[in-house]
Simulated scan of single mutants.
Amino acid sequence: MPISVVTSDLTRLPRDAIVNAANSALLGGGGVDGAIHRAAGPGLLEACKALPQVAPGVRCPTGEARITPGFLLPARYVIHTVGPVWHGGHRGEAGLLAQCYRSCIALANEHAIASIAFPAISCGVYGYPPEQAARVAIATLRKIAPDAMDVQLCCYDAHMASIWQDALNRA
């Protein structure tokens, strides 16, 4: 399974699926989530609203994933996952982050997705240290992603890409 690091706008990648670092309500937000919702158009919000709530205001608990069409995006699908908020690493954050990647790959397998792009899940407003997140992501993906799946780790700038590329080179 090829894993590569790219510096790009996730919403412009022509992949079978892109992953949205979402909040548990799946109703849009800031950062990657907001950018994906804006680029996909209003159909994405409607599709997210149609997903059942598993608790009041929660359509996707931390560590799980949901899938919707990509609507106006070049990607056929958006896989939404909710990463953990960083609390110093002592509240199971690494396990929850790894579960995000496992949940996304499981949905990708179910939908015969051959190419997928991930953002740096939880590294924005959720505060996960990028160096630690990259190690968790790459170790998890190497264990579970099918050999035929093309996995991109999409970073928004060169600094973040260098962190993720370094983790990939060391793995």
Rank of each mutant, 00 (worst) to 15 (best):
residue 39 A to D: 04
residue 139 A to I: 01
residue 74 P to G: 11
residue 92 G to T: 05
residue 87 H to F: 14
residue 102 R to M: 10
residue 119 P to A: 12
residue 108 A to W: 00
residue 137 A to C: 10
residue 68 T to S: 14
residue 61 P to Q: 08
residue 77 Y to N: 08
residue 26 L to H: 00
residue 133 A to M: 11
residue 136 V to I: 12
residue 129 P to R: 09
residue 64 E to S: 13
residue 170 R to E: 15
residue 168 L to E: 01
residue 58 V to E: 06
residue 79 I to A: 10
residue 118 F to Q: 10
residue 88 G to F: 02
residue 13 L to M: 14
residue 54 V to R: 09
residue 49 K to M: 13
residue 131 E to C: 09
residue 44 L to E: 11
residue 141 L to A: 06
residue 122 S to Y: 05
residue 49 K to Q: 14
residue 144 I to S: 03
residue 156 Y to L: 15
residue 18 I to R: 03
residue 124 G to V: 03
residue 35 A to L: 09
residue 159 H to I: 13
residue 88 G to Y: 02
residue 109 N to E: 15
residue 66 R to V: 04
residue 149 M to P: 00
residue 91 R to D: 13
residue 57 G to H: 03
residue 6 V to N: 05
residue 111 H to M: 02
residue 63 G to Q: 07
residue 36 I to F: 05
residue 31 G to H: 01
residue 29 G to F: 00
residue 79 I to D: 13
residue 79 I to H: 02
residue 48 C to I: 12
residue 94 A to P: 03
residue 29 G to C: 07
residue 134 A to R: 09
residue 151 V to H: 11
residue 161 A to R: 13
residue 162 S to G: 12
residue 113 I to V: 15
residue 56 P to T: 06
residue 80 H to D: 07
residue 126 Y to N: 02
residue 2 P to Q: 13
residue 145 A to E: 07
residue 152 Q to Y: 02
residue 151 V to Y: 08
residue 91 R to W: 08
residue 69 P to Q: 15
residue 58 V to F: 02
residue 47 A to S: 08
residue 22 A to F: 06
residue 27 L to N: 01
residue 169 N to I: 04
residue 151 V to S: 12
residue 93 E to V: 01
residue 164 W to E: 12
residue 46 E to S: 14
residue 9 D to A: 09
residue 149 M to G: 05
residue 26 L to P: 02
residue 146 P to Y: 09
residue 125 V to K: 12
residue 93 E to T: 00
residue 126 Y to I: 04
residue 57 G to T: 07
residue 119 P to L: 12
residue 7 T to I: 14
residue 98 A to Y: 08
residue 66 R to P: 04
residue 48 C to R: 08
residue 91 R to P: 00
residue 88 G to C: 00
residue 71 F to C: 04
residue 74 P to Y: 08
residue 9 D to F: 05
residue 29 G to N: 04
residue 137 A to W: 06
residue 49 K to N: 07
residue 38 R to Y: 09
residue 96 L to G: 11
residue 46 E to N: 13
residue 49 K to S: 09
residue 120 A to K: 03
residue 19 V to Q: 02
residue 19 V to F: 02
residue 12 R to V: 13
residue 109 N to R: 14
residue 64 E to T: 08
residue 40 A to W: 06
residue 94 A to C: 11
residue 44 L to W: 03
residue 33 D to G: 10
residue 79 I to C: 09
residue 151 V to G: 11
residue 147 D to P: 11
residue 163 I to Y: 04
residue 155 C to G: 04
residue 49 K to C: 11
residue 138 I to F: 01
residue 102 R to F: 12
residue 26 L to Q: 05
residue 154 C to L: 06
residue 121 I to Q: 00
residue 42 P to N: 15
residue 54 V to S: 13
residue 66 R to N: 00
residue 15 R to N: 11
residue 153 L to P: 04
residue 42 P to K: 15
residue 127 G to F: 05
residue 59 R to P: 10
residue 147 D to R: 14
residue 12 R to N: 03
residue 54 V to E: 14
residue 51 L to G: 05
residue 73 L to A: 10
residue 154 C to G: 09
residue 170 R to S: 15
residue 53 Q to P: 07
residue 47 A to G: 01
residue 29 G to P: 00
residue 126 Y to F: 14
residue 19 V to R: 02
residue 28 G to H: 05
residue 154 C to H: 08
residue 46 E to K: 15
residue 160 M to W: 01
residue 27 L to G: 08
residue 63 G to V: 01
residue 160 M to Q: 13
residue 108 A to Q: 03
residue 71 F to N: 07
residue 107 L to E: 06
residue 150 D to C: 10
residue 139 A to D: 15
residue 57 G to W: 01
residue 147 D to T: 09
